[in-house]
Every structure is written in structure tokens, then in C-alpha cells.
Nucleic acid binder design. Structure first.
Lengths: 171, 171
DNA sequence: AGCACCTTAACGCTGCGTCAACGTTC
DNA sequence: TGAACGTTGACGCAGCGTTAAGGTGC
């Protein structure tokens, strides 16, 4: 029996080794809703159900869910995720499948690099903005915020692009 | 008069220097719908309208829209975007505003670095998967796809995590 | 005059979040 | 037995995409 008021330190695993919906959610940092939704969409499949109707998943499905969550977080839509996890399907030979998968993965990887470049460029610009804002922590001009555009901080040469938007305005 | 069948090489700019909705969209790589939606949400504001009702924006609004588009592409929701572009507002002194902006920007930048790390880890794993799949382009095993899990390619030590999901399955 | 461009209004879609009401597990 | 956990609907929401029907700019 569970002792109330005392949480189990180790997650109790089922004796059959299968995972419940909640375990899938926790171990993949997603949610019950997402697991069920992905099943609805045919992206996950429980190996069976308990007599009471609870879903039971194999470990392989957890790995799949983790990959899919990462792909979603990386900015791919569910259809693209589906294409990726289905890459092996629909080919008669392994060599064919591998060749197709290699080219498709190449495209996705390229998209990720593009996104990473955008991200780091933006991050760099925001960091520059942040640094340049340091001068403003000593601002004593009572005409704030309307006159920031005339202030020497905002007019001295290479102003970060974001800062122009964030600070160099009348309002 | 415009000569039909011949597109203008240089974008015609209005004599007053203002930008139409379409120009805003094109120059920010977004869409008409997005510009209008952002106006509805109070994120953009046309300086005026033509007598016929067409919106006219200043260049500063274009810069703002570009920043907002980048922030959206970087994974921030519209509310977070709004917080960022409104950082200057609601403070009585410039020094106050700058200090708050510095700490808030710090948080956003940290989130971006986190996302970038996730992205590059996933990209690296997909690249490893892609490389390891090269061996499979020479696969001649007729038991594909059901027996990939027993193949030496999939059992030889450090298999990329994604590849385990993509290939190491029965179906 | 004619064509590219713009307008509002309205509905559609994705990817879940969030109840409610109720059943299961151990 | 009771606390934790799971089930199926059903509706809600963000952030636009996408027509439709029509007016504007030059």
C-alpha cells in the first residue's frame, strides 16, 4: 500500500515494463494531452490497453515521442515531423530507403542550420543592445522618454538594430 | 502609365516616403494578413491612411515589424514579443527603464541560447544519423525493413539516438 | 482606362490547453 | 479503501492562411 504524504523517490515501473500515458508525458517533458493527440494523429501507437482502458506503450515509443518533441521544439510542424519519423516507410529495398532518407535528412538539417544562424544573429544583436543600454542606467535626462532619439547614446555610431526599435522612439 | 507585361525593376517608392501594407509585408518577409493582424493587436500603427483607406507606415514601423518577425521566428509568442518591444514603456526615468530592460533582455537572451543549444544538439544527432545511414545505401538484405534491428549497422556500438527511432524498428 | 494593389469580413486550420464528469490501479 | 492516476468528450485559443466581394492608386 502507498503511504500517503510521502512521494515515491523512485518512479514505480510496471512489472511488464510498459509505460503509461503519464509516464510517457513525464519522461518526454510533454503532456497527457499531447500523447493522446499524437496517437489520434497516428504518430504514436500503444502496444495494448489494460482491461480498464489505460494505454500501454513500449520504450521504443518513448524514444519516438522524445525525438518528435525535440523536432517540434526545433520548429518543425507535425506534418514535417511525420515525414521524418516515416522516412523508412514506402521503399522496397533498404538501399533505396537509405538514399531517400539521406537526402531528406539533409534538407531538414539545412533548415535547422538556417534557423540556428537566425537565432544566433538575433541573440547577438540583443546582447549588443543590452550592453549599449548600460549607458542609459546613468541617464538623468528629464526629457525621457521623448528625447531618447537625440541623446548621444542613441546617435553615437554603431547602434544595435534592435535598440533602434526598442529605444530610439518618441513614445 | 505602367507598361503591362513588364515588372518594375526598382520598387516604386511613394513620394511621401511612407510604406504601404504590401511594402511592409515584402520588406519584412511577412504577409499583408500579418501586418493587419499586428495592427489589430496594437503591435503596429500606421501613421495615417490615404483618403481611400490604404494604410501608410513610417520606416520605424518597418524596423519594428522586422524585429518582431525575427522574434517570432526565434520562437517567442506574440505576448512575449509585445513585452520586448514595450520594454521602454511604463517607467518614470530612463535609468529605471534601462535597468528593467537589461534584466528582461537577459532572460530572453538566455532562452535563445537554450533554444540554440537544443537545436544544435538535435542537428548534430541528425547529422550523425545521416552519416551512419550511408552504410545502408549498400544494403542488400532482402529482409528489409523488418530485420534492420538485427543488422550489424544498427547493433554496432554508438548509434545516433535519432537513428534508433528512424531505422531500428520492425515496420 | 486599366491593372496592380489595397480594403473589410468571415471562416478555416494547427497543436495543443483546459475544463468536466467519470472510471482504473494498486 | 483511498489517493493517484487515467479515460473520453467538448470547447477554447493563438497566429495567422485563405477565400470572397469589392474599392483605390496612378
Amino acid at each position: 500500500v502507498n503511504v500517503p504524504g510521502r512521494k515515491p523517490k523512485t518512479q514505480r515501473r510496471r512489472k511488464d515494463g510498459f509505460l503509461t500515458t503519464g509516464e510517457m508525458a513525464r519522461l518526454s517533458k510533454s503532456t497527457l494531452r499531447t500523447v493522446r493527440f499524437y496517437e489520434e494523429q497516428g504518430l504514436l501507437e500503444p502496444i495494448s490497453r489494460t482491461v480498464g482502458g489505460h494505454r500501454l506503450f513500449r520504450e521504443a515509443e518513448l524514444a519516438k515521442l522524445r525525438l518528435m518533441s525535440d523536432l517540434r521544439a526545433a520548429g518543425f510542424g507535425l506534418e514535417e515531423v511525420r515525414e521524418i519519423v516515416d522516412l523508412k516507410r514506402g521503399h522496397s529495398t533498404g538501399a533505396d530507403a537509405a538514399r531517400r532518407a539521406i537526402t531528406e535528412l539533409g534538407k531538414k538539417i539545412a533548415q535547422m542550420h538556417e534557423r540556428a544562424r537566425l537565432l544566433s544573429r538575433l541573440a547577438a544583436d540583443l546582447e549588443a543592445s543590452r550592453r549599449q543600454l548600460d549607458a542609459c542606467t546613468r541617464c538623468e535626462d528629464p526629457r525621457f522618454p521623448v528625447n531618447c532619439g537625440q541623446c548621444h547614446v542613441m546617435t553615437s555610431a554603431p547602434l544595435a538594430k534592435a535598440l533602434r526599435v526598442l529605444w530610439n522612439t518618441e513614445s
